[in-house]
Each structure stands twice: as C-alpha cells, then as structure tokens.
Amino acid sequence: MELLSANQYISSYIIQSQEEEIKRIALELHEGVGQNLYSLYTGLQLIETGTEQPQLKSYIQEMGRLMERTIQEIRLLSVELHPPSLSALGLLPAVKSYAKLYTSTFGIVVESESTGEEQSIPEQRNIAVFRVCQEALANAAKYADTSRVKINFFWEEKGLKIVIKDFGRGFNYEECNHGRLSGLAAMKERMLLAGGGCVISSKIGEGTTIEISLPLNGDSGDQRRVCIDKNSAC
C-alpha cells in the first residue's frame, strides 16, 4: 500500500470536477436542449396539419425528420456522457444499457455475463469503472476491427473483477500511436486513483484483453491509499 502523491490528489480532484461538469452538461442536454427541441418538433407537426400546400407540407415534413434525428442524437449523447442508470441502478445495469447503445451505433455485439452477487459501489469509484469500460469499448470500435466484444463481471466479497475481451486484430504496444497510448494510460490512471488496477494485454491476431480490479471493502476502499500493481503492463 502506498499513499497517494500530491500529483495523484490533483489528478483525482480534476477528474472529479470534470465528472461533475459532464453530469451537469448531460442533464442540460436531456432536460433543456432536448425538451426544447421536442417542443419545436410538436409545433412543426401542428403546423403541418394546418397547411394544404403540398410543397410547404413536404418541406415541413423534412424539417420534422431532421429535428427528430437531432433529438435522438442529443439523447444518445446525453446517455453517453452520463447514463442516468449508473446512479439509479448501479454499474452492471449501466454497462448493459450502454452496451445496447454501443451495438446500435457501431454494429459490434457486446456479450455480458455476471458471476456472483452485485454489490454497491461508491459513486466516484462507480464512475471510474464505468469510464474505463466505456473507453475499452471505444478502443475496440476504433482499433480492433471486430464484430464481437465480451464483458465478464466477477463479483466476490472483497472485490470486483471485470474482463473485457474484443477478439480483434490485437496490437503491439511498442507500435501504439499516441492517441491509443493516451487512452490506455488514462484507463490505468483512473483505476489507480479509484484504488484498483487495470492490466491490458494484447496479441496480434487474437485480440486485446483488459482486466479491471476494484477492492470493495476494507482499507483498500479508502481513496487516500491505492494498491500498486507492479506487474501491470501496457
């Protein structure tokens, strides 16, 4: 066990502040901009019923379809930024809900399995784990060239382990581009600050596996301390 350094405290504070702002923006998109657009959409429908000019009617219908797509995109963006189910229902339902959105967006099937009894996780740590799962899925869509991802949750009394496997092309760490390296480093940093760990392994032609671990009780749950996994690779 090692105490968090001053830099890690700062990183933790920055991430927490960012998440609060993201949550606020997501709520505003859904309940502010989204609701306003929906009101305009219903107004367009009312105008459409009151006009007899075919050309104008066709134009209003096209505008209505465009607005409908925009409303849907805003809703999806809001859920991606901060899924309401994460706070209301917990980590597992939130990941499953996001997986459905992910599949409809990228066409990649996400299989999820859960072993053991799901446990309650403090909000900040819940968000950290969800963001790492989200980043892992995003990386699979960007780089893996795969049609299938599997997520396994293993719930135990003292900890949670999540294994994410993409069955894609795999990669060589030494040849990673900067963007990908930054994403991997961010995942590991998030889990470190949450008191857990993140181990990433990959083989060319066999895909990439991400193992997330998070203690669920005892002293390891104190965010002033973290477990350092000396064997964690890229």
Rank of each mutant, 00 (worst) to 15 (best):
N36E: 14
L40S: 09
I121M: 05
Y98Q: 10
L44Q: 04
S120K: 07
L29E: 07
L37V: 04
G107W: 07
N36D: 08
L81V: 00
V95D: 01
I108Y: 08
S78V: 04
E80C: 12
G90N: 07
S58D: 15
L56V: 14
G116N: 06
S104D: 09
E118T: 09
R125E: 12
E113T: 11
Q72F: 02
R75H: 14
N36S: 07
S114F: 02
Q53L: 14
K100D: 10
T70V: 04
F106C: 01
E111D: 15
G64D: 00
E31I: 01
R125N: 03
E113C: 07
Q53E: 14
I127V: 14
E73L: 11
Y41R: 13
T51G: 06
E31T: 13
I60A: 07
E68F: 11
G116W: 04
P93M: 06
L81G: 09
P83F: 12
K100R: 12
E113K: 05
P83D: 10
Y59L: 15
T49C: 02
Q119S: 05
Q72G: 04
E31S: 06
P84N: 13
L27K: 06
L46W: 12
E52P: 00
G116D: 10
Y98P: 06
S87E: 10
T51D: 13
V129I: 14
M63A: 12
L76E: 15
P83Y: 03
L101P: 03
Q119Y: 00
S112Y: 02
L76A: 04
P122N: 04
Q55K: 13
Q35V: 14
Q45N: 08
T49N: 04
R65H: 09
I127F: 02
E73W: 04
N126G: 07
S78R: 06
R125H: 04
T105Y: 02
G43Q: 13
Q35A: 06
E28P: 00
K96R: 08
R65Y: 04
H82W: 15
N36R: 05
E31L: 14
S112G: 01
I108F: 03
L91P: 11
Q124H: 12
M67I: 15
T70Q: 11
E118H: 03
G50H: 15
G43K: 09
E117R: 03
P93A: 08
K100E: 11
H82K: 09
N126R: 15
P84H: 05
I71L: 10
S97Q: 14
E117K: 01
S39Q: 14
L46D: 11
Q55I: 07
G107E: 05
S97R: 08
L46S: 11
L89K: 11
Q35K: 13
A94S: 10
Q55S: 15
L81C: 02
L86A: 08
L37A: 06
G50D: 13
G50K: 12
L40A: 10
I127R: 06
E48L: 13
E62S: 09
I60R: 11
V109W: 00
S112P: 00
P83M: 09
E52W: 09
E28L: 09
I71T: 01
Q124V: 08
S120M: 12
